[in-house]
Amino acid sequence: MNIGFIGNDQELCRQLRQASQTEGVFSTQETNDMELILDTLKTCKLILISDRLVQPHELESLKELFLGKAELVYLISYKADTPVIEETKLVCMRHGIGICHPKRTVEQLVEFIQQQYLGGGAPVSKQGGQVIALVGTRGQTGVTATTFSLADEIGRRMGRKVAVIGLDAFSPGDTFITYAGSYLNDLYTQIKDGGILTPAELVTHMHQAKNFAFLAGNMDITKRYRYSSESVAHVIACAREVFDVVLLDAGSNPDNNLCLQALLHADMRVVVTTQQPAALTNWHRYIPLFRMVSSESMSFMLLINKWSKQWGDTKEIERSMAVPLLGWLPDLKDDGMLCEMERRLLTTVDHSKYTEQLKQMVDLLQSRFKWPAQEETPARKWRFGRRATS
């Protein structure tokens, strides 16, 4: 199939040309001859349109120009104003023009186009370890502490090589551990736009705990909004290659690209909430954003943290959020604060219900990802990086 591209992304054109289903890719940036551009585009069966060159109000004219000759797809770039994106989608729907949602890397764009328009068949399976992203309904829901607990339990019981990657733009997540690694912002130049960081180098930058490795998140306030989709994708891809299981601490701000890319790249997404009314209300405010950036509905599992029976049943929260329950963890009260002050994991607390519920959730994850059980397996030695510490 011949593909036309009304836009300026040379890398997108290059990767499309490498796709087995394409015969040729023509970009309008290759010539200034408008007559030649129009004649060439009329030979294409699929035309991709960048919103950086074509405004929504111009789409109707393009549709009329290529009516019956080609299928049109509008590539929407990210805009902070959610209504603008929703209105753009309505314009496309009105004119029968396909859409590609924002916040996609070039690789994700090419995969989407292959699957949706080039008869690519089943989605390409992701190579390497499984990625699980945890996101909070608001701050202080305990995403970081819960991520550490899951990582510690998976590494200890399942014999998996586990990583935790901090992708919270507003907190590095280095509490509960006496941290001895690099921070995400330290790697900024190495991961920028896809970068040069290798999987082996990533490990050398990570703190090595007893049962998992950890790369702390961003601690540079000037870089909170500067991480590109490609740079985040590169870090996750490096972690996938080295580790069996990668847990992403995505924080609680899905309007930030670090958090958003964690959700887009995950094989499984877990939303962490408390029973606070504000936390539950905030979840419903996130849903329009998820719909805006994903061509398909994002699926989540629910983890209720700091649960207390006096504030209601878990089923009530499950119904309110319309998210199936993965499990819950009890409120550790003063023990949780003590762990943070002493920089130790919540799994060190002698609390039978916490241990029981954590075990049940890891058992479910084992079933989901078909991990072989290795009860009480000693922590695996690392091939790269610093010596393991408690």
Rank of each mutant, 00 (worst) to 15 (best):
Asn253Asp: 15
Asn282Leu: 14
Val73Lys: 10
Glu11Pro: 02
Gly312Asn: 03
Glu64Asp: 07
Val106Met: 06
Arg343Val: 12
Gly181Glu: 10
Lys353Arg: 11
Leu118Cys: 04
Glu153Gly: 00
Gln357Val: 03
Phe290His: 01
Lys381Cys: 12
Ala19Thr: 09
Met34Val: 15
Ile221Asp: 13
Leu59Lys: 08
Val242Asn: 06
Asn282Glu: 06
Gln15Trp: 13
Phe176Trp: 14
Ala213Pro: 00
Asp244Ala: 04
Arg344Asp: 04
Gln190Glu: 14
Ala70Arg: 08
Val293His: 04
Glu318Thr: 07
Leu41Ile: 09
Tyr225Asn: 15
Asp267Gln: 07
Thr189Phe: 10
Tyr183Asp: 03
Thr355Gly: 09
Thr178Pro: 11
Gly129Asn: 08
Gln18Pro: 07
Ser352Pro: 00
Thr204Trp: 11
His101Ser: 15
Leu150Ile: 12
Pro324Trp: 06
Glu87Pro: 00
Glu201Ala: 12
Gln29Asp: 14
Val235Arg: 05
Cys238Ala: 11
Lys381Ser: 13
Tyr354Gly: 07
Leu263Gly: 04
Gly68Ser: 09
Met93Arg: 08
Pro378Gly: 03
Phe66Lys: 02
Lys192Arg: 15
Tyr179His: 10
Leu302Pro: 04
Ala239Gly: 12
Gln15Met: 09
Trp311Asn: 08
Gln10Tyr: 12
Leu326Phe: 03
Ser228Pro: 05
Ile132Asn: 01
Ala322Pro: 05
Lys309Asp: 10
Asn218Glu: 03
Met1Val: 09
Pro123Lys: 05
Leu365Arg: 00
Phe214Cys: 00
Asn305Gln: 03
Phe300Asn: 00
Asn282Met: 13
Asn32Glu: 11
Leu46Glu: 02
Gln360Arg: 08
Ser171Arg: 12
Ile85Gln: 13
Ser61Asn: 15
Ala163Pro: 02
Val271Tyr: 01
His351Glu: 01
Pro330Phe: 05
Glu11Lys: 08
Gly98Tyr: 12
Pro172Trp: 11
Phe212Val: 03
Ser149Ile: 00
Ser50Ile: 11
Val203Gln: 14
Ile221Lys: 08
Asp255His: 09
Leu118Ala: 11
Ser297Cys: 15
Ser77Thr: 11
Leu247Gly: 06
Arg156Ile: 05
Leu167Arg: 02
Gln360Ile: 05
Lys359Glu: 11
Glu11Leu: 14
Asn257Val: 15
Val293Thr: 06
Phe176Cys: 03
Leu46His: 04
Arg94Lys: 14
Gly4His: 08
Leu118Lys: 07
Ile132Gly: 06
Arg269Ser: 02
Gln190Leu: 13
Tyr354Cys: 02
Val246Trp: 01
Gln116Trp: 07
Ala80Pro: 00
Trp311Met: 04
Gln276Arg: 12
Glu318Tyr: 09
Leu202Pro: 01
Leu326His: 03
Gln310Phe: 11
Gln190Ala: 14
Ser367Glu: 01
Thr377Glu: 15
Arg344His: 07
Arg291Val: 12
Trp311His: 10
Gln208Trp: 15
Glu340Ala: 14
Ile113Asn: 10
Thr144Ile: 04
